[in-house]
Design a protein around this nucleic acid. Structure first.
Lengths: 342, 342
DNA sequence: GAGATAATTTTACGCGCGTAAAATTTCGAT
DNA sequence: ATCGAAATTTTACGCGCGTAAAATTATCTC
């Protein structure tokens, strides 16, 4: 490796004895230059470690291989996990993912979309904030960048939506809970940030009605994404005021359930479905750590791999095929994961 | 808002009746143009929603306000949390953070550093993979970009290191555990990915020796960052073979502890320091979810806020002051967080 | 109101790279 | 060895923007 630092493609072309555009062609597709030319470039590459500036490339390439991935909250393990899965798939398909978290803030989401736009990505996978999103700004972004929505849908926006069928997954776990014990109450935020929560509430009400049980919503106050904390504190308060009409609680998501589990423990309530248990608690999402709660959390697994796979398929179709076709909406069924807590 | 879409600064300058460089000056510093000019631009800004392309800006600006933040694994809540804290501080100080996770892969870390370099960031905050990092590549990066290492140190690299004093925090919790019950065994990976783990092991051995107790390392096999899983499975096996010489276990980090907590539960071992408890378990880091385990995890809190604050201070000093000064190393003391598990 | 000086804007060029069109080279067929 | 088509490389220009230097405009004196 030579000591001389090569910073630009011009310099690198010069030391390989070629013109810059030829080198540029090589970096776009090594097979697009003559074999002997390729050998010269690759020989130079062993002597100097040069790599093209990706942002300068993106500025000019008609089509980049960049993919923007935007999620509402990266410190939420659910989103961290799904983002990780999608990122891996992107890399495997030869794309360059760039991950952003909106920190739950609509303004930041808009700003992120602006800077994703500046990247000229081939496409973007967006899990919008949802209710709080600046819909106009998101719509404007979708005009300019082929966008696939995931996790939470904003009707009519983007080329596709990939998510989970809350209706069916909540229906399934409600049915399971009713079959194996008393019908569940539903523990949730009164004004949740994520639209899925609304779908789940509706799904719970439907499912209970269909099974002929009276629904019990236990709605607690709380803002933001600090779900475990809300679940724990508000759960304690709910126990205090005997808010749960039955001994079974279905939580709107696993993070609330983890909080409620902690609250139950503090109240001395044994959770589970065995002998001597005072309470059953279930969640939704199959959060990466739900397997390790004590007791392990019964939940509905969102199919991370299937969602990621379908996102990538939709993405490749979007990039490959010229005609967009109608906006397609795919919702995967959750898988009931019976563990110890319910 | 006019229907016409403004894409470039040229276009925007044209509709504001000015030349592009004037507009460029405005966006660098609104006060740098005449008051009347500024008014014209801002009036135009209300009619057209134009924003400069940040990547094109970065390509040319002598100094950008970009800050690269690189962590080894974003799906680890510890890193997600510290990254979030630092990101917030960056935004508050008027920087534009760009967050990357290496997915535990040295190759990806190198690639990320390459693309961070292309961003021409004002500085970079890097939590390196550590043991598995390509040290040469990291060193080359540090030559080109003012870099502050955090969480895990690579001696001599970067302008500063900000982290936790493992020696003192492990010393503190070992002392606490010894005072309040039997001396702890130390539960860890045999070949951990993160260098802090080695420091903690050494600190444990030191602390035990200083207190006149015989140390007991329980080292388990496992690769990667799936710590809860390793902690649970290997913890089960360790219980099986009675690997823990005492009834107290200090885990190398909270994620292992969360796994071990799950293993103990499955074995029917009651964890805590009260009556009828079979085992005490403690961790290290004060992982965001450690408050919500059952029982709540006794641990040592890393001072996220202090680390983030000092990172930003070092960053501003680095950018502001011309002379770098000697590499400064700051290590914050952890805070003993006594909860229920030990 | 003319001339000098300071503040501001514009011109001209550059950043690192992509890409269409022109120029060159290569290669097979004669 | 010669010609022509195809493959390849180079020339020339553009992307969206920053910035130094030149040109313009505003401000101040007398």
């Amino acid at each position: 490796m030579s000591a001389m630092k090569i910073k630009t493609m011009e310099e690198f072309a010069s030391v390989s004895g070629l013109s810059r555009p030829t080198v540029s062609k090589y970096f776009f597709d090594p097979k697009s230059v003559r074999q002997s030319t390729r050998a010269r470039i690759e020989e130079a590459l062993t002597r100097y470690d040069y790599r093209p500036n990706i942002y300068a490339m993106n500025q000019n390439r008609r089509l980049t291989r960049m993919v923007g991935i935007v999620v509402p909250f990266l410190a939420d393990p659910f989103f961290a996990e799904i983002a990780r899965t999608i990122e891996r798939r992107c890399v495997a398909s030869g794309f360059r993912p760039l991950l952003f978290g909106s920190h739950g803030e609509p303004d930041l989401e808009v700003e992120i979309l602006q800077s994703v736009l500046a990247l000229k990505p081939a496409a973007t996978l967006l899990a919008p904030l949802g209710r709080r999103s600046d819909k106009q700004a998101v719509a404007a972004f979708c005009e300019d960048v082929p966008t696939i929505l995931f996790d939470s849908n904003i009707e009519g926006l983007g080329e596709a939506f990939v998510g989970s069928n809350n209706d069916r997954s909540i229906g399934r776990i409600v049915a399971y809970l009713c079959e194996t014990g008393s019908p569940p109450c539903f523990f949730e935020l009164k004004a949740p940030p994520n639209p899925n929560a609304y779908k789940r509430r509706a799904a719970y009400l439907n499912a209970m009605e269909a099974l002929g049980h009276e629904p019990h919503l236990v709605q607690v106050h709380g803002e933001g994404w600090d779900f475990e904390n809300i679940g724990c504190n508000e759960g304690m308060a709910a126990f205090e005021r005997r808010a749960f009409a039955t001994d079974t609680v279905l939580c709107s998501n696993d993070r609330l359930a983890i909080g409620l589990l902690a609250a139950a423990y503090r109240r001395g309530l044994k959770v589970g479905r065995g002998e001597g248990c005072a309470l059953r608690i279930a969640g939704h999402d199959d959060h990466p750590f739900s397997r390790f709660t004590t007791p392990a959390l019964t939940t509905v697994s969102q199919d991370y791999e299937a969602i990621a796979t379908h996102c990538m398929e939709a993405l490749e179709r979007l990039i490959g095929g010229g005609d967009a076709g109608p906006r397609d909406t795919v919702m995967f069924d959750g898988r009931l994961v019976v563990r110890e807590s319910a």
